[in-house]
Computed example of a mutant assay.
Amino acid sequence: MSGFDAGVARAENVWYRSYPFWDAYFALVLVGTIAATAADGLPPGRKAAAVMLLVLLGVAYAAVGRKALRSREERRPGCRLYAAALVLMFVPATLLAPVTSTGLAALAPQVYMVYGTARGFVLMVVLFSGAIGSTMVASGAGVTLTLVMMLVAVACSGLLATFIGRLSAQNRERARLIDELDRTRGELAEVSREAGVLAERERLARDIHDTIAQGFTGIVMLVQAAEAEVGPNRHLELVARTARENLAETRGLVAALAPPALARGSLVEALRRLAADFALPVDMDVEGEQRPLGPAVEVVLLRVAQETLANVRKHAGATSVRMSLVYGRDAVRLTVADDGRGFDPEAVASGFGLRGMRGRVEQAGGDLAVRGGAGEGAVVEAVLPCSA
């Protein structure tokens, strides 16, 4: 079996798959006990009564006990009725024919599986009473020997109860862990799916902006240059208008593919929501005239802020964070600084997070700077042109 499959692990659960073996074991012990009772040199009336009680016990197991044994409910259906059947059928059978006490070999594990350790122990003491009482009468044993037999039987029953109780607890814990694994795998699959969708949307938006949108912008500029040389021309005006209309449609498509955080408002609002939801206090500062920067630039700045805050949470050991967004005339600068333990930027330059941020920023025509030192915190600064 390659990998871990929760369904297969659950199917291979020894506890639940062992039920047919318990049925077969109980049937074999019961048949053997009936045969031993029939062959015992007892008066025919007592022998027949004991055999009849054992047969009725088998019927009670098939009708009620088997279902109670297999139930996974906290209150097993029919368990009280089956307990009454055990006491009213097995105890008299052992009083009539002491050899029937061999049936305890099958009843003991069954009782603890159905009733648990505490209630099962009490029920087993009752079931032992008939066997010990009949043995005491048949052998003429004294009180001391009877007490010793009782203590030995109770001790053996207690050991069996401990073993089956631990096995049952281990089984329940295993079932809980498997259910928890199922839920975790489902949550991870959903998160992975959403992350994949967002990543694909962002890639499409970036590709459309870098190819089709830039192409339409180039066409508009070429048409404007051609009009400057040849003068007004109906065909050139039609080309320019068509290019502008398609450029507007392309920009709308890029905006629609932007991250949901940007779809619900401006870049500043998205950064403020990101800061408010962060695990540490974030001091957010905005300078300059706020204006749209274009989907490509805003997406890159948002991703840089998200990745930087994620690194602060995982590695910095900081108590607070400062984030600033400065709108300049030709460029915009995002700075994220923390008061954590700091690090050597050169030592982690090959890390995937920093490499990914640097690649995003440089692809958008900007620069990424990382500064820090041991015990001095860290500063991540991204500068991008507003016209990107």
Rank of each mutant, 00 (worst) to 15 (best):
A305H: 04
N246S: 12
P260R: 12
G317D: 05
D283W: 08
L271T: 01
A305N: 03
F278Q: 01
L257T: 01
E287F: 10
G288V: 02
R264P: 02
E298M: 08
G294I: 03
P295L: 05
R291H: 14
L247W: 06
D277L: 12
A318T: 01
A270P: 02
G288E: 05
E287K: 12
V312Y: 01
R264T: 12
N246A: 11
L301F: 04
Q290E: 15
L302E: 00
G317I: 05
T308C: 07
D283N: 11
A256Q: 15
V304D: 03
A305D: 00
D285V: 10
L257A: 02
R272F: 08
L274A: 03
A296G: 05
A310Q: 14
L309F: 04
R264S: 12
A279W: 11
T308E: 06
P259I: 07
V282A: 03
G265I: 08
S266V: 07
N246C: 11
A310I: 07
A310F: 07
V282D: 02
D285Q: 14
L301C: 04
A276Y: 09
D285F: 08
R273Y: 11
P259L: 05
A305Y: 00
T250K: 07
V299L: 10
E249Q: 10
V299P: 02
A316K: 00
A263N: 15
G317Q: 10
G294W: 00
E269M: 14
A305K: 03
A316F: 04
Q290W: 08
D277M: 11
R251N: 14
V268H: 09
R291K: 14
V299M: 15
L262H: 11
A305T: 05
A275P: 01
A305E: 02
P260C: 10
V299H: 03
G294P: 01
M284F: 14
R273T: 10
L274G: 01
E289W: 09
L274Q: 04
L262E: 03
P260V: 06
V299I: 15
A279M: 12
M284A: 11
M284K: 08
P295D: 06
V254G: 04
R272N: 13
L274W: 02
V282L: 09
E269D: 14
L309Y: 00
